[in-house]
């Protein structure tokens, strides 16, 4: 771990301004991802700005009947919130499928959204990795890639985004609210928030330098059966091989996002028109351009069959 300086910001605007001012600054929320990465010198911030006490830890109704989730709301609190459990069941279920109780007590909404990949080569600083060290190469291509992306990947990087929460947020059409270093607020639709790796896998979101997430808002509830199904090698405390977040309406329409398959929560709205015709039809469109490695090709079938089980559960 490198030495760093530390400050506790007094307001969101001040935090964003400080982040832009200080070279190599990073925000720290729960620290459950950032600190691990700092110990391994995968992240080497020179300055940490603690955003824990900015009053961003509230969950409030919005004027249009939705919900505004503060960036610092802990995963545990969000999953247990009465309105989330009633109106956004897929989100509550996704959160509870992630990490462990202890981690969720610490992990925040913004931090979860911004957690970095679990590609094992990213974690080993001896190995080439374009995401960690741009231009050094991608060890996962041609290497151990069972966990990796099957779609939307590039020749520079085939990592997945590991978050469960973000997959549910994507299915719910959430919006990320931010404040920029100049004090201006911005709203980023979740579809535009996470990026595909392209030739710059180190750039993972559309946040500008210094931009602070203040909240994630959920639109007015859409009802339907809300299911989150996470498939993994062990029963708990593991990242998804494939996960499915689905909201299915009585008439069979709905929306679906997949986790574990791409560099971001994977949703193709055009595929959802196929929902009444079943999982095969949906995944055929959802994963049209899939390019799996030979170690993770099973994810295509797994996604289809998991979605099939989810749709059956929604019907039943």
């Amino acid at each position: 771990m490198r030495s760093f300086t530390y400050e506790r910001a007094n307001s969101p605007a001040e935090a964003a301004a400080a982040a832009a001012r200080k070279q190599g600054a990073k925000f720290i929320a729960g620290g459950t991802n950032l600190l691990d990465l700092m110990k391994l010198e995968i992240e080497t911030p020179a300055h940490l700005i603690d955003v824990n006490r900015l009053g961003l830890d509230r969950i409030e109704p919005t004027a249009d009947g939705g919900l505004r989730v503060g960036a610092l709301v802990r995963n545990t609190d969000l999953a247990a919130h009465e309105r989330v459990r009633r109106d956004y069941g897929v989100l509550s279920r996704a959160l509870l499928a992630g990490a462990s109780g202890q981690l969720r007590n610490k992990a925040t909404t913004a931090g979860n959204m911004l957690q970095r990949t679990r590609c094992p080569y990213f974690y080993d600083t001896n190995q080439p990795c374009n995401k960690r060290q741009p231009g050094s190469g991608c060890s996962a291509i041609g290497g151990f890639s069972r966990q990796h992306a099957v779609i939307g990947a590039s020749e520079a990087c085939i990592a997945t985004h590991p978050s469960d929460m973000a997959v549910a947020m994507r299915a719910l059409d959430a919006t990320v609210e931010t404040i920029q270093p100049d004090g201006a607020a911005r709203k980023i639709p979740i579809a535009e928030f996470h990026r595909l790796p392209g030739s710059t896998p180190e750039v993972e979101t559309s946040l500008a330098p210094g931009e602070l997430i203040t909240a994630v808002t959920l639109p007015k509830p859409v009802g339907g059966k809300q299911i989150y199904r996470k498939v993994r090698d062990r029963a708990s405390y593991a990242f998804a091989l494939v996960s499915v977040a689905a909201i299915v309406q009585r008439d069979g329409s709905g929306c679906v996002a997949l986790g574990g398959v791409a560099h971001k929560p994977w949703r193709v709205e055009a595929a959802e028109v196929e929902l009444p015709r079943g999982a095969k039809a949906v995944t055929a469109k959802l994963l049209t351009d899939a390019k799996p490695t030979h170690e993770n090709a099973f994810k295509l079938l797994l996604a289809e069959r998991t979605l099939g089980a989810v749709l059956a559960e929604a019907r039943g």
Binding site: R118, P120, D124, F144, R234, S236, Y237
Partner: peptide
């Protein structure tokens, strides 16, 4: 490659 307890899964 999977040289930590996140990558080397043992039963929970």
């Amino acid at each position: 490659v999977n040289h930590d307890l996140a990558g080397y899964e043992v039963p929970v």
